[in-house]
Structure formats: C-alpha cells, structure tokens
Design a protein around this nucleic acid. Structure first.
Length: 805
DNA sequence: AGCACGCCGACT
DNA sequence: GTCGGCGTGCTC
C-alpha cells in the first residue's frame, strides 16, 4: 500500500505529495487525514496522509516510520477544504492543513549527537568526550549555547563515524493525566482479599470494601480525601495486587469550576420570528443558503442563533459559532453554555495550547455538538454540520493576516455548501461586501429593526472639540461629557468611556526642535510606556530608555504626546477625585482572567466609570450603564485605509449600543475633531442604510470593494533598490497580462515604509473578473523564486486584502 | 527548510 | 595537500 503524504516543509519545491510505503502492520490502521512520521532526506518529519493508493509514482520508496494519530485529525472534507484554501489564498498545502488543527499537534524537531555503537569515551578527543560523560544524546541546541561552539568538532567526528546524528521529532501535545484506582479480580476473589487483610490494616480494608461495591475507576485524589489517608495505603493495596492504579487521560476544562445558569428559549418577537423562519426552513430541508441577519444592537440576534442551533442539535447535527476574539467574553460564553451546557466547546486565544487541544478533541470525539470560537474554529472537525453562524460578521479579525490568509466568512460558506447547511452572518453594521451581496440576492437578507425591549436606541450627540478649544476648554473632556458623567455619579449610574487608541498612541516630541522618537529599524514612531518608562516599537519590539534630553538638540522640553488610556485615567482622577474608575487596556488585562475580573467588578457596581479601548466596544451588557462617551471618534478616519469610514461607523454604532440596554435609557456623547463627516453623523442617527448608500457611492467612484476585488502584493528587502526593482518588474508584468478592465496600482511604498530593517513596496490589483490572476501571480512567484530563496527577497500575496498597511 | 555535494581560494 | 566558504539541487 502506498500513502501520498504532504510533508511539514513550507517551501514551493516540496508543495506536493510524496509517496511512502505503508508497512504491513499499519495497512489496517492508516487512514487519510492522519499524521505520520516519515523519513525525508536524512531527516524525520511530520506529514499528513492525503490519499492511499496501490500505485507509486517513483521506484524507490521509503517506509512510513509511524502513525501519530489513532484516528485522522483531518476529515475527508477538511482535506479537500485545505486544497481549496491553498488555491484561493496561494499558500502551501501544508500551511493550510496546519491551520486546521490545534497548535499543540504541530511537530517540533531536534537534532542530537550520539556515540556510534562500539565507540567509547576514550576514543574521542577530551573536548568532545566531556559532553558524553553523563548523557547519551547531546542536543544540537546545547552545543550552540556555549561559545566557542564545538559544533565543527562534532561534525568532524560524525564524518569519522565516531558520532552519529539522530533526528528527533515530538509534538507539543501535553495530554493531562490523573491517577485512578480500580478494583481487580472476581467478586469471590475480592471478598477473600478483604478477609485476608491483617486486622491492623484498617484503612486498607475500608478502601477495598468501598471499591468492592464500585465498578468504575475512582480518582485517586478523591479516594484519599474520602478516607482521609495517604498514598502509601493505596500503594500497599496495589502491591498486593488487590487493586490497580491506572493513568487516565483527562481534559482540562477551563470552565470546570463554574456553574452555568441554564436558560430556556425566550419567546421571539414578531420580527425575530420572521427572521428565524427561513433559516429553520433551510435547516429542515438540508439546503445551503447564506443569511445576512442585520439587526440593530439589542434586537436579539443571539436568541435567534440559540434557537437555530437548538433545532440543528435536535436534528442530530452540529453547529459552529464564530465570534470575534475580542468579544469572546465570559458573558458571551455564558449564553451558549447556559443554553447547551456541556455540549459546547469553546476555542479562543486566552486558552493555553493544552486547553485548546482538549476542547478541540471534544469536537473530534463528537462529545460536543456546538463550538463557540474565534476565526480558526471555522475548521472544527465536525462531520455532520447543520449550521454555521458568524456573529459580528463585519469584524476584520475574521481575516487572517498571515498565511494562510483566509477569510473565515468564505470558508464558512464553502463548508456550508459542502454540508448543505445554512450559514448565518449576523451584524448590526454588516460589511459593505455582505450587504451588497444581500442586495444582489446572493445572500438572503433578514432585518431586525426593533430592539427586543422596545427601548429606543440611545440618543447620540456629537461634540465639536475644536469649539471646546476655542471656548478655552483644553481638557480631553468636553463640557457636555463632563457634565453628563457628573450626573451619572450623582444618580449612582454608570458610564463607559471609550478611547480609540489606534493611530493615537503616545509618541515623544521635542518642543524645541520637533524631533520625534522613531524606531531605528522601522519607519514608525516609538510608543511611550509609562509603567516601564521606556520607548517601544510596536512592530519589531525594539525598546530604549526614555531620554531626559532631546537626542538632537539637548533641549529638556521633550515630552510625550497623544492620549493613552493611562493619561485619560489620570485626568479623570484629577477632575473627579471621588469617581471610581476601572481601566481596561492591554496593560491591565495582560494576565489570564483579569479581563473577566475587571468586568465583573464593574458589573457588581464597584466602579462608576469603565474606561477602555476596543476591547470594551463589544458585547458588554450592564443594566446601570446609561452613558457612553467616545473621546475621539475620528482618530481612525485619517488612517490610509479605504475602509476607514466603514470602520468608524461600525465602531461608533457598536459603542453606542452599550448604553441603555435595560430599564434605564441611555445617552451617548461622541467627541470629534472632524465634525460633519458622514460616518460620524450617520452613526449618531443610527442610520445604517444611508451610510451604506453614501459609502457605496464612494467605493464605486474609487473602484474599491465591493465593486472591485482587491489583491495586494507586498515586496520587502533589506536593500531598498531590490524591493523597488522586484515590485516594478511585477507591476509591469501584470500590466501586460491582465484583462483591460483590471487596474494595477503602483508600485508604491507601503504605508509603513520599513519594518525590521526591511524596505517595503506594494502593488495593488483591482479587478472585477480576472480568472487567471492566481495563475499569473504564481508565475511571478516562480520567476522570483531564486531571489526569494537566496537573496532575501520576500513577496507576500494577499488575494483578498482587507487592510492595505 | 535542511542537507549533501561540489567547486574554488586560503592556509598548515 | 587539506579546510572551509558558499552556490546548486534534491528530498518519495
């Protein structure tokens, strides 16, 4: 039997299957989709079995070394889907497959040196012999740690056949095990055993009697606690052969010690009913259809998700729910765990690799029917999918910004077609792409225009901060916002203050000469971190001490500018000393669980004001929040991104939705320096449709998505000229080959011209119909293959560019 | 990627 | 004559 295997080497020259002989003892167990260890050249690598055949394409074959999985990690569907992903995104097959399984299953490789059989320490020069005194194998890694490294000597000894090289492969799996105790023998034997115990062995007798009447394994730790004894008692029993101590694999359950209040389906409003019906119909008929569920904040989208999933489960099917990483909050998880209990697996980045692996295995073993997770959960290995839901479908985090550069929305639809099941895209502010598709009839549009509790959407007032400045208010709070926060303080209600930090981090500036602290490796200004009193680069990690004098002109008047949450917090405490503030940003939520803790504190009313960045924009639902303040609505508008308006609109709508979700009605104050911009004004009016119309007009005019597709080629090189040259050649090559309607822009220097000492240029391709584009780009990559392999040229391809940075 | 092989200049 | 630098080509 021959296995076609994709090996774990992401380079174009081996982006194909290699044939291996399946040893006789594995022919029954090997299946497509399993991971195997195979010899590859002198090395030992991990690979995926793609196909089993009888015919080999070459004469001399090597054998599979071992199987790494008892059951396939990739289903037949996922194997095909991987191919699709690699074609659509132009990535290597292995990269697509690796993205589908938990990182814990990725192999790590180690190279070690060992004495050849029959060679003794005395045969080696002392310098090498030293190493083998206490160990048989010396990892290459260890040799590299000492300087000067004895690597050359070791290599020489390998050539002389004194040492040999071993390639070790292991995966990062960390299955967690616990010890369990189980009874042994027949009933009679056990009765006899109990009697045979010495009268002094009181505890042993107790334990044995207990186990006698218990036919399942007992967790050792529990047993010890139950009988208030120690390990030695149990071990004594095991030594006598009366019981067995076994190791059992267990799951780490990140939610184990938490109780979930079980919820029942809520009665649906008329609008909800109208939206859910077509979904249920598609479900029942096992028919693929993509629904765009456009519902204002608070319109009860989640209840529609829950009841649709419930139907799928009742039909014996499974469901995937994607949520943006940032809103995968405990509140969100609770809603799903509350309805479906232990049938839910949760996959998000806050889990450790081991925890993620355990959650994933619950899916693989069909122990759950629902997975709630971020982007990569779209690859959950369900085989009987009944429903895929993408909540907040407009979120940019559904697009992976590294290889494979896939969009979870596209993958979801692809899987929906395969399983002939509905896909729901839900949002209060659908992406223009999706809404346009719904308008064209590609997706089915379901609109929820009313809030479930019939509350009006909060009233939004937009404040012109330039006016404030003219009126002599130099603080970052307008008079209106300040006043309203104070009202809330007096009434015992809560406020949420939102600071959009992007493009607004604190940089340092010399007031005398205008010097701005910049990263020496990237063309980007350094960010001041108050806690450590350091300047850091957010792109390459470079850091340097904060200077006390300007490095250029030695002036003392060097200060940091811009507004971070820390600065806002300082000003808040200065202006309102009695207000209790909780600040949430990357600095305060770094540790696992701290995010949840802070939110709980706020929910319990332990603070008056919640101040934070993006992470508080979504999913928060606290009854006492009646005021939302947006400190600077327009910071994002000035970024070099054609989606800036769309993102601003979405963010403002999202944030406004945090206010007045319950009995108390809410108010929103939006501060801005770009007053009169349609994205801000229309968000204040809660007018998605006008925004859609306005923005679509602009997109059409400038030939941007959704009217055109957008692909981006990025070229980077440590030498400026090499980057320019490759990008120019590529642009002119494409211009020659593409169809007349297609637009090739550039090459232009990237918005961040240099990162990690590499100069960056880009070429943008806008097209309506260009079936040969993938092919053309593949040709380009092939042409530059050599320069990429040996001369340090990097070309990255994004077939569906979301951001052009 | 990582490795062997092979060619060429530099040095014991 | 041997060592080690890097360009080339292959991995079932």
């Amino acid at each position: 039997m021959i296995a076609k295997v994709i090996v774990d080497v992401p380079v174009s020259s081996v982006n194909r299957t290699f044939d291996y002989l399946v040893p006789d003892d594995l022919t029954d167990s090997v299946k497509p989709g399993m991971r195997v260890a195979v010899p590859f050249g002198p090395r030992k690598l991990q690979g995926f079995v793609i196909e089993l055949t009888e015919e080999a394409s070459v004469q001399k074959l090597k054998k599979i070394i071992e199987l790494l999985d008892p059951v396939p990690v990739l289903t037949g569907e996922l194997l095909t889907l991987g191919q699709w992903v690699s074609e659509k995104t132009l990535c290597f097959l292995i990269t697509a497959y690796q993205a589908m399984i938990p990182a814990a299953l990725k192999a790590t490789y180690q190279k070690e040196f060992r004495l050849v059989d029959g060679i003794g320490l005395e045969d080696l020069p002392d310098e090498a012999g030293e190493w083998f005194k206490y160990r048989e194998n010396i990892p290459l890694e260890d040799l590299m740690k000492v300087s000067p490294t004895p690597l050359a000597l070791f290599q020489k000894l390998v050539q002389k056949n004194f040492l040999e090289v071993i390639y070790r492969m292991s995966d990062k799996i960390t299955k967690k095990r616990i010890k369990v105790v189980q009874r042994r023998g027949t009933e009679e034997e056990r009765v006899k055993a109990i009697e045979s115990l010495s009268t002094q062995a009181v505890k042993q007798k107790e334990i044995l009697s207990f186990l006698h009447g218990y036919d399942r394994p007992v967790v050792l730790k529990d047993l010890l606690e139950m009988f208030d004894t120690t390990r030695s008692t149990v071990q004594a029993l095991a030594r006598k052969g009366l019981i067995e101590i076994l190791e059992k694999e267990i799951y780490r359950d990140p939610y184990e010690d938490r109780e979930f209040k079980r919820t029942k389906p809520l009665p649906l409003t008329l609008q909800q009913e109208q939206s859910i019906q077509p979904v249920l119909a598609a479900l029942e008929e096992k028919r693929h259809e993509t629904f765009l569920l456009h519902g204002v904040t608070g319109s009860g989208k989640t209840e529609i998700y829950l009841q649709s999933i419930d139907r799928a489960i009742r039909m014996g099917q499974e469901a995937i729910v994607l949520v943006p990483e940032i809103s995968l909050t405990p509140q969100m998880v609770n809603r799903f765990k509350g309805r479906f209990g232990s049938r839910v697996a949760v996959l998000h980045s806050a889990l450790s690799a081991g925890e993620k692996y355990d959650e994933w295995r619950k899916i693989q073993r069909k122990e759950v029917s629902v997975v709630v997770g971020a982007r990569s959960a779209v690859f959950a290995p369900f085989e009987n999918l009944g429903l895929i839901i993408i909540d907040e479908e407009h979120e940019s985090s559904y697009k992976q910004e590294e290889n494979p550069r896939y969009h979870a929305r596209d993958v979801a639809v692809q899987r929906g077609e395969h399983h002939r099941c509905p896909v729901i895209l839900g949002s209060a502010t659908p992406s223009l792409e999706s809404y346009a598709r719904a308008q064209k009839g590609v997706y089915t549009l379901c609109e929820l225009s009313d809030r479930v509790n019939k509350r009006d959407l909060p009233s939004v007032s937009v404040v012109d901060m330039r006016e404030e400045l003219r009126a002599g208010n130099r603080s970052m709070f307008s008079r209106e916002l300040f006043e309203k926060i104070n009202e809330r303080l007096e009434r015992g209600e809560q406020s949420v203050l939102f600071l959009n930090r992007r493009g607004y981090s604190s940089f340092i500036l010399c007031r005398d000469c205008g010097y701005v602290g910049e990263c020496p490796h990237c063309d980007i200004s350094l960010t001041y971190h108050k806690k450590q009193h350091l300047l850091k680069c957010h792109y390459c990690g470079h850091q340097e001490p904060m200077p006390s004098r300007c490095p250029m002109c030695e002036s003392q008047y060097i200060r940091f500018f811009g507004t971070g949450t820390q600065k806002v917090e300082e000003e808040l405490t200065r202006l309102m000393p009695h207000a209790r503030v909780i600040r949430m940003d990357v600095d305060t939520t770094g540790r696992k669980g701290s995010h949840e803790k802070l939110l709980n504190q706020f929910g319990e009313g332990k603070a008056d004001i919640l101040l934070g960045t993006q992470m508080i924009a979504k999913g928060l639902d606290f009854p006492k929040v009646t005021l939302v303040g947006v400190l600077a609505a327009d910071t994002m508008l000035h970024l070099p991104d054609f989606r800036a308006s769309e993102k601003t609109f979405q963010l403002l709508t999202q944030v406004s939705g945090r206010a007045g979700r319950h009995e108390l009605s809410g108010e929103v104050v939006v501060q801005s320096y770009t007053v009169g911009h349609y994205s801000i004004d229309l968000a204040a009016d809660h007018d998605y449709h006008s925004f859609y119309e306005t923005e679509m007009r602009i997109r059409r005019e400038h030939k941007y998505p959704p009217y055109y597709y957008l692909s981006l080629l990025s070229f980077s090189h440590t030498e400026l000229l090499k980057a320019v040259d490759a990008s120019e050649k590529s642009a002119s090559y494409l211009r020659q080959k593409v169809s007349p309607g297609t637009i090739i822009l550039g090459p232009v220097v990237s918005p961040i011209a240099r990162i990690k000492d590499r100069y960056r240029y880009q070429v943008m391709i806008k097209y309506k119909n260009e079936p040969r584009l993938s092919e053309l780009i593949s040709e380009l990559l092939q042409h530059f293959q050599h320069e990429m392999d040996v001369n340090g040229l990097q070309i990255s391809v994004d077939m569906n560019a979301q951001n052009i940075m």
